[in-house]
Amino acid sequence: MTTLARLQLDIDTRVQTIRDIHPDWLCGKGCDSCCRQLAEVPRLTAAEWDLLREGLAALPPERLREVSQDMVALASQQSRPVVCPLLDRSTGACPVYAQRPVACRTYGFYVQRDKGLYCHDIETREADGNLLDVVWGNHDAIDHSLTSLGEIRLLTEWFDRWENGK
């Protein structure tokens, strides 16, 4: 099992544990708030990009063209928040969900020391004391694990290199 696959399995296990305890957890199919309000363009390791590229390559050509147009627009966008260029805005779904990066897998289930929970709806529930039994994942540990997965680039950079055969 690759380091990335092991990391994904660990993340998926933690996420499922939280979902089992809280079946009404906000993060799930139909919720795309985080995808529509990114603070910055996602950064991926080389290993994450290799997996994501497989998902992109399997998309129908017309969907891949839309992603490409969104990537180009995002690369020059100065304003924030950022909408994920992979998001299908009409359905609110991720067409490469199975190959999504670690940041997408951990969002809403992991926290970083001194950085909060990020999702306003989850932060509100946590502040109200509704999530006292949640054992949050340690995102600092995730970041440490990612350091062994190769070079890190912006999603738009990886995509541009792939599209231009670099």
Rank of each mutant, 00 (worst) to 15 (best):
L7Q: 06
L7Y: 02
L7I: 04
L7E: 02
Q8N: 05
Q8W: 00
Q8K: 02
Q8D: 04
L9M: 12
L9Q: 15
L9T: 15
D10A: 10
D10F: 00
D12Y: 01
T13N: 12
T13R: 12
R14C: 12
R14I: 14
V15W: 07
Q16V: 04
Q16P: 03
T17E: 13
T17Y: 04
I18G: 06
I18P: 08
I18Y: 06
I18N: 06
I18F: 05
I18M: 08
R19V: 01
R19N: 01
R19E: 01
D20F: 00
D20N: 01
D20V: 00
I21L: 14
H22E: 00
P23T: 05
P23V: 03
D24F: 01
D24P: 01
L26C: 01
L26Q: 07
L26R: 11
L26W: 03
C27I: 08
C27V: 08
G28R: 11
G28A: 05
K29W: 05
K29A: 13
K29T: 14
G30R: 06
C31N: 11
C31L: 09
D32N: 13
D32C: 13
D32L: 02
S33T: 07
C34S: 10
C34F: 11
C34G: 09
C35P: 08
C35F: 06
C35S: 09
R36N: 10
Q37G: 14
Q37I: 06
L38V: 07
L38F: 07
L38I: 07
L38H: 11
A39H: 13
V41E: 09
V41D: 13
P42F: 02
P42N: 01
R43P: 00
L44T: 04
L44D: 03
A46V: 06
A46Q: 15
A46H: 12
A47N: 06
E48K: 03
E48H: 04
W49C: 07
W49L: 07
W49M: 08
W49S: 05
D50M: 07
L51S: 12
L51M: 12
L51I: 06
L51G: 08
L52C: 02
L52F: 04
L52D: 05
R53F: 05
R53W: 07
E54I: 06
E54D: 12
E54M: 09
G55S: 09
L56H: 09
L56W: 11
L56R: 08
L56D: 08
A57R: 13
A58W: 00
A58N: 05
L59G: 03
L59Y: 04
P60D: 14
P60T: 13
P60E: 15
P61H: 09
E62H: 03
R63P: 03
R63S: 13
R63F: 04
L64K: 08
R65G: 10
R65D: 14
E66G: 02
V67K: 11
V67W: 11
V67R: 12
S68Y: 08
S68G: 14
Q69V: 05
Q69T: 11
D70Q: 13
D70C: 05
D70W: 05
M71Y: 08
V72S: 15
V72H: 15
V72Y: 14
A73I: 12
